[in-house]
């Protein structure tokens, strides 16, 4: 079933990605085509099959809690697009 325009816009909003008019049409078509390829999974009986999250087989890994230095704050801020002193500067999150 092809994705409707409203669905493409909804997905883009969830993903926080702006799309142009052209992209809405293109991704709608391409994603629909890709989703068709997924229909093959419907023929697979997965009743009672446990999901695999990753293939490594490791469980939660614990280590001793040893205090150590983290990155220097200058390093942390080195790639900041916008900074003010020791802080990342961002647009207002809360409305007045």
């Amino acid at each position: 079933m092809p994705l409707e325009r409203s669905q493409v816009e909804h997905i883009a909003a969830l993903a926080r990605i702006g799309l142009t008019e052209e992209e809405i049409l293109m991704f709608g078509e391409q994603l629909s085509h890709i989703l068709e390829q997924f229909e093959v999974l419907e023929e697979l009986d997965t009743t009672g099959v446990a999901p695999t999250g990753h293939a490594g087989g490791l469980q939660t890994v614990m280590r001793e809690d040893v205090p150590q230095d983290s990155l220097d704050s200058e390093d942390v801020l080195k790639n900041a697009p916008n900074r003010e002193g020791e802080f990342f500067r961002v647009n207002a999150v809360l409305e007045e």
């Binding site: 993903a15 799309l19 890709i34 697979l44 997965t46 446990a50 999901p51 695999t52």
Partner: peptide, 29 residues
Amino acid sequence: TRRVMLGTYALSTGYYDAYYLKAQQARTL
């Protein structure tokens, strides 16, 4: 962008079981 959107869709409310969970079960098989 295509993959971020595809993944966002597969994980979104109402589609998680049909896509993401199903794929993880297929992964087991």
